[in-house]
Amino acid sequence: MMDTVLKVRGLAVDFKTDIGLTHALVDVGFDMPRGKVTAIVGESGSGKSVTANCIMRIIQPPGKIVGGTIDFAPESMDPFEIVSLGKRDPRLQELRGGLISMVFQEPMTALSPVYTVGNQVAEAILCHRKVGRQQAWKEAAEMLERVGIGDIDRRIRMYPFEFSGGMRQRVVIAMALVCHPEILICDEPTTALDVTVQAEILTLIKDLQNELGNSVLFITHDIGVVAQLADKVVVMYQGRVVEIGTVRQVLKDPMHPYTKGLLAAIPGLAPKGEPLATIASVVGDTDISRPYPLISLPDGRQVSMPREQIPGAII
């Protein structure tokens, strides 16, 4: 039996809008294996980031978790359920940044412009451990060096606006890892960076994960990144999970029509000179905008489609 660090079940999130409720997440469920990289892929608006925010419990109004459970089994303390944590539960503060931390999409705005880099990284330590300021700054410096920021004595006293985008993202990563969280959530961490820096950051995340042994939840719409990093893939569409499997299963042999469409829409794989594939809401015989329950298949993968359309499924 695989060791599961995070178990999401039936997660539902509604956004109250002027025209009524928007169901941002409907019955989202997946497991995260410990010490591995789980990727959530899907197009914009499919609920990837909302899922991540639920895990951190930082869903902002008008968004609201209306159902489901997130069971978290940290190594350092007793397992607990995240959705039902009270606002004043000390475990909630410990969870944020201590047990689970997050790297955001926009490194240019994810840091406050009026505090030094050292201050913001050290703060993460001071929030979670009873150490002195000096010790916190020392550890912050070590972490910043580890993510590849040189000339640390000078740079630790610099402000974020004096850093380039790639360096800022390194700072954000250092800030996320400085408390040695058990899960690192990366919410499209390379989308705002240019291509060469993207590769560096991805390598950095992968290397640090190997080194520190934490689990990673990697949110992206970039299939290439998934292939490079992930062990397990969760495909989301319109707030639902449509397919879960190992990276090999999902990328080599996609089963759900939406996953197939997604893969076909990668520019590099399409024949030159032809228009890129787009994804219609009806693919083949399946109306992918209609929800179907996730069905577990014998090879470990899960897919949400009519039972009779699953190739080789035992009905």
Binding site: Q60, F104, E106, T109, A110, L111, E123
Partner: peptide, 21 residues
């Protein structure tokens, strides 16, 4: 609702300090 506030919140900064700092 700026991203840096969300970042600080995700870092585990307590509610009062989060707003003021």
């Amino acid at each position: 609702n700026k991203p840096y506030v969300v970042t600080a919140r995700a870092k585990g900064v307590g509610p009062a300090k989060l707003i003021l700092k």
